[in-house]
C-alpha cells in the first residue's frame, strides 16, 4: 500500500513539474538576439551591437497597452537598481509616432532610452516562431520583457500573460540576479 502511495505521489509530482515546465518555457532562449538600430525619442541612434559587453533588458511597448503602462514605473525602478551593474534598460515602442510616444512617456520620466520601432520591423524579428500565428508578427512581442546577455544572447524572454501578470518584474529580476551572480 505504501509502495502504491509513493508511486502515485511521484507520478503526480512529475506531471506537475512537466506542466509547470511547459507553462514556464520561454521562447528563443540561447539564441542570438536580432540586432537592430533605432532612433530614440531623445533624437539619438541606439544599436544593440553597441551594447555588447553589457546586459540589456528590453521591453516592447505601445502607448495604448495597459499592461505596458502598469509595468512602466517598475522598469524605471529596475534601471535605478541595476543601472550601475552594467545593465541597460530600453523600451522599444512599436509602430507609433514620436509625438505620441513622447507625450505618453512624459508621465514616467524614464532615465533610459525609449526607442521608436515605427514600422514594427524590429518587433516582428522578436516574434517567436510558431507563437500566436494568427497575429501580425509585430504585435506578438508587445508587453514582453527580455534579457540579452553580454554576448548578445537571449537569456530571458517573458511574453505577456494577463492571468499572471508580473508588473513588478519579479521573475525578470530573479533571472537578472542569477545571471549577474554567475558573471562574478
Amino acid at each position: 500500500m505504501k509502495r502504491i502511495f509513493y508511486h502515485v505521489a511521484s507520478l503526480l509530482i512529475a506531471s506537475g513539474s512537466v506542466a509547470l515546465f511547459a507553462q514556464e518555457k520561454q521562447p528563443m532562449i540561447g539564441q542570438p538576439a536580432p540586432v537592430f538600430e533605432l532612433n530614440s525619442t531623445d533624437g539619438k541612434i541606439y544599436s544593440l551591437n553597441q551594447m555588447k559587453g553589457d546586459f540589456v533588458v528590453i521591453h516592447f511597448a505601445a502607448t495604448w497597452c495597459p499592461f505596458c503602462n502598469a509595468e512602466a514605473p517598475f522598469l524605471e525602478e529596475l534601471y535605478q537598481q541595476y543601472g550601475n551593474k552594467n545593465v541597460r534598460v530600453i523600451i522599444v515602442d512599436v509602430k507609433e509616432d514620436k509625438t505620441l510616444v513622447e507625450k505618453s512617456m512624459e508621465r514616467f520620466r524614464f532615465s533610459f532610452p525609449v526607442l521608436l520601432d515605427t514600422d514594427g520591423t524590429v518587433s516582428a524579428q522578436y516574434a517567436p516562431e510558431g507563437v500566436q500565428k494568427d497575429l501580425a508578427r509585430h504585435e506578438v512581442p508587445i508587453a514582453s520583457n527580455l534579457i540579452i546577455d553580454k554576448d548578445g544572447k537571449i537569456r530571458f524572454y517573458s511574453l505577456l500573460n494577463t492571468e499572471s501578470f508580473d508588473a513588478r518584474l519579479t521573475k525578470l529580476r530573479q533571472k537578472l540576479d542569477e545571471i549577474l551572480k554567475d558573471r562574478n
Binding site: K95, E139, L160, T162
Partner: peptide
Amino acid sequence: YQACDSRTCFSP
C-alpha cells in the same frame, strides 16, 4: 476598440 486576451494585447 482595443482588445486583449490572456496572452496578447492587440493594437486598436
